[in-house]
Amino acid sequence: MDIVVCIKRVPDVAEADVEIERSGLRIDDSDLSWGMNEWDTFAVEEALRLEAEHGGTVTALTVGGEDDEEVLRRALAMGADTAIRLADDAFEGSDPLAVATVLAAAIRKRPYDLVLTGAVSGDTGSAQLGGMLAALLGAGQVALATRTAFANGKLEVQHEVEGGLERVVELDLPAVVTVQTGINEPRYVSIRGIRKVASVEIPVEGAGDLGLDVAAVGAAGAREALSELFLPPTGEGAEILEGGPDEVAEKLVERLRERGGI
């Protein structure tokens, strides 16, 4: 089975004081640490697991700049066979549909049975790229997968549906599947593992290589644009208890007592 995995490099904001740049269009990400989107680590692992079981190839793709090459290297270190970076000045200002259009053009160029993406990205998190990609490729799709199994030329996928339920569906290939966290245990990559692939040449493909009409991608093709970033209104917010651990604990006990928690 030939599998393509789409991955994105995102900043880790979990514990960071996120500041918005004066332009109002970007966050100040200079002090943030970056890495492979959490969901994509599961997608890469799932691709490698299917490859180990059924043979074939795993190709990792990202649409991004030079800095984003780092996540392709991580995918290679995890065991992907090939990594390609899709980059072109014309891709600047792309909306998710444009990013999907670039990815679709790259995927169409090669034989593929299955495309895996993360369910959502941890930064701009629109949760739409996989579904758009499938429609552009004319392939079937299923979102939020928690298990995959390949047999008799079909892919069985369990995925999250409504009300805490999951459903198993059978997909004809080629297909696009978006992967949820927890589907597997992404393998650990050591610094040595990364060093091993440090000198691997990662090819770059641009609009010309992909046969893309530059009017369809980048800011030119975007119907969705960011007009402003702002910090969420705090509203009433929580009453913040001040003091050392014992002091706040005491105050908490009081509040819990008032509310019938004790």
């Binding site: 549909l97 998190g125 739409q128 758009m132 499938a134 429609a135 552009l136 549906v161 119907r223 969705e224």
Partner: peptide, 24 residues
């Protein structure tokens, strides 16, 4: 709705219908 089901349905549909999608 931007539910699990909406996530499964809306992106592909928006492409088929030829409309841009504002998610969530």
């Amino acid at each position: 709705a931007h539910t699990n089901l909406g996530i499964d349905f809306a992106p592909g549909f928006s492409v088929r219908a030829g409309v841009p999608l504002l998610p969530d």
